Amino acid sequence: MPDDTRHVNGATARDLLSVATLLEDPQLAGLYAYLYREEPVTVREVMNALDFSRETTQTLLSRLEEMGTVETLTDDEPQKYRAASIELSLSADQGDRTYTVTPALIDAVGRRTADGDIDTYIDRHGLAGLATALIYAVDREQSRVTHRLMARNLDIAPLEAEIILQALRPVVHDHFEIEVTDSGDVFESESNAP
């Protein structure tokens, strides 16, 4: 009888390694996030949008395909690519807190090289801190929290909270539909959700 547990654990390990690679490489993360937001896209569209050379684009797409985070949709030229949906929950600090890695978090990491405020925040607070800040950024756009409340809850300076909330605002608007009704109630939903 085959050992299905080993296959499932092998797939889980591969998924974890793929997500870890995305979170460690801002260029891969940025490409993944672009594909997730704009799917389906061609190599030429990636080159134009991200200002990558053809060689860089094809190399990165191949790496993402090998990782199982991107798939080719057509065999015809020009080939079109789509990002797989990622949602992976991880526990940190001896299981006291759970963080969910989503395309929005991967996108925020991908913007690290272009946005010094995100880069600085990750250097100071790590990826878990960025994940927490992203939750506050969504709540801020829904008028549920202020930068001062975030600062108090996370024991950081109010200016630091305001800076990261502003830096994450484009990520929130690229991945979440934030709506305010006439009554002032706020609703959100993650875009591109399966």
Rank of each mutant, 00 (worst) to 15 (best):
D96E: 07
Y81R: 06
T146F: 07
R140W: 04
R124T: 01
V172A: 01
I163E: 14
D76Y: 15
M47H: 05
L50P: 07
I156R: 15
P78I: 11
R144D: 15
H173I: 07
P170W: 15
F176E: 00
T146K: 15
R169N: 09
R152L: 09
L73A: 04
D119L: 08
G129Q: 00
F52P: 14
R152N: 14
Y99H: 14
T100D: 12
N48W: 06
L154C: 12
A161Q: 02
T69A: 08
L64T: 06
E179Y: 01
L64F: 04
R44E: 10
V41A: 09
G116R: 07
H125C: 04
A133P: 04
T57Y: 03
V46P: 01
A131Q: 05
G110S: 09
L105R: 10
G126V: 00
L35P: 00
V43G: 02
D93I: 01
V138G: 07
A108D: 00
V46E: 00
A161H: 02
E141P: 11
V171A: 03
L88W: 01
L159N: 12
H175S: 07
S143H: 14
L60F: 00
D155C: 02
D107H: 08
L61N: 13
L127A: 11
R152I: 07
A83R: 02
V43Q: 09
P103Q: 05
D51M: 12
E177F: 12
Q58M: 10
E39P: 09
E87P: 05
V46G: 04
T102R: 10
V172L: 09
T72N: 12
T57F: 04
S85L: 11
S143L: 02
A104G: 03
V138T: 13
R124Y: 06
P78M: 07
L168D: 01
Y34Q: 10
G129H: 02
I156E: 02
A157F: 12
V145P: 04
R152V: 04
T69Y: 10
V172P: 04
R169D: 09
